[in-house]
Computed example of a mutant assay.
Amino acid sequence: MSIGNSPESPEDDRNFPADDRDSIGRALQQARVAAGLTVEEVSASTRVRAPIVQAIEEDDFSRCGGDVYARGHVRTLARAVGLDPAPLIEQYDAQHGGRPSPTPAAPLFEAERIRPEPRRPNWTAAMVAAIVAVVGFVGFTMFNGTDPGTGGAVAEGPAPATKAGPTAPAPAKPKPVKPATTKPVPSESAIAAVPADKVTVKLTAVGDKSWISAKAHDGKLLFDGLLQAGESKTFQDDERVDLILGNAGPIELYVNGKKIEDTFESGQVQRLTYTKGDPEAG
């Protein structure tokens, strides 16, 4: 008589994965290491706390606060390390009971549909009534200002002289209004006019996105995040700018007004430092 489950018990089959794919946490960890990023750097770029990043890489989703937040963290971390999040989300749904059903929004739309629209005042009718009143007042004033004695003929003698009324003052000419002068807004593209006493670095993502980090000479973080395709960022410091390019291939780089001709490969991680003067010495 044996005690416990036999080796052929169905309970043991549940300990084996359904397929030979890596777990979600292991896939994220391997991609992060391949990109040359630390847990702290991924945490800073995604705003996901470092303990949660470490827990997810160990396939522990209990600290995420629920399936909705866990799916969001997996999607954010996958994009930060250069993975397609769709297969990982599909794998998570298969392991945790499927995708959560969306909340029906029909009651909200019904409430918006039956809400009465506020009645707007009829400004056109009010303006027309004001114009008619002004025209009527002006006509009435001009009609009452005529002298009725001037209309009859004089039988004998010269016509009586009429007293000249006071001359109405000429309306004052309005003073010309000077148009407001607007100061031109400097453009980031004006990189040729960089100050000589600073180090100026401009990065542009061409054709693809890239995670970048930029720090000043005193360690102050100037930027940490994703630079989408077509976007540009410009950084300045009095002494030095330190860069980390998570995907250096699509980055077009200008330093102190001069284009850097180095050819970076896609997926390559580059750590660069530039100072004032000729960027070739950076």
Rank of each mutant, 00 (worst) to 15 (best):
D60H: 06
L227Y: 11
A129K: 05
R75F: 03
E57Q: 07
V74W: 02
K178Q: 09
P102H: 11
P107H: 06
G165S: 10
V201C: 06
L222D: 03
A70L: 03
V255D: 01
Q30T: 15
R21H: 12
T103C: 00
S210D: 10
D218F: 04
R79A: 13
A18V: 03
E156K: 06
V81Q: 00
K175R: 14
L226R: 07
K259P: 09
D20L: 10
S45P: 12
A170C: 11
S187L: 08
L203V: 13
R75Y: 02
L272P: 04
F109M: 11
A248C: 07
A78T: 14
I52H: 00
G4W: 01
F140M: 09
T76S: 02
S23Y: 06
T103L: 03
C64Y: 04
A229T: 15
P85D: 08
I260E: 00
V128H: 00
P7F: 08
E188T: 03
R240E: 05
A164H: 10
P158L: 03
D93M: 00
P171T: 05
K198H: 14
T234R: 08
Q228I: 12
K220F: 08
R75V: 15
T76D: 00
N256L: 03
V241L: 11
A153L: 06
I244P: 01
S101H: 02
E11W: 07
F235Q: 05
K173D: 10
K233N: 07
A55C: 02
E156D: 05
A126K: 04
S213H: 13
P186H: 08
P85V: 14
V241Y: 14
V68L: 02
E261I: 06
G98K: 04
P179Q: 05
E261H: 06
D13S: 10
R115D: 09
P100N: 02
S187F: 04
Q95A: 14
A94K: 13
V39R: 00
I251T: 01
R119A: 03
V177T: 14
V33P: 02
I244W: 11
R21S: 13
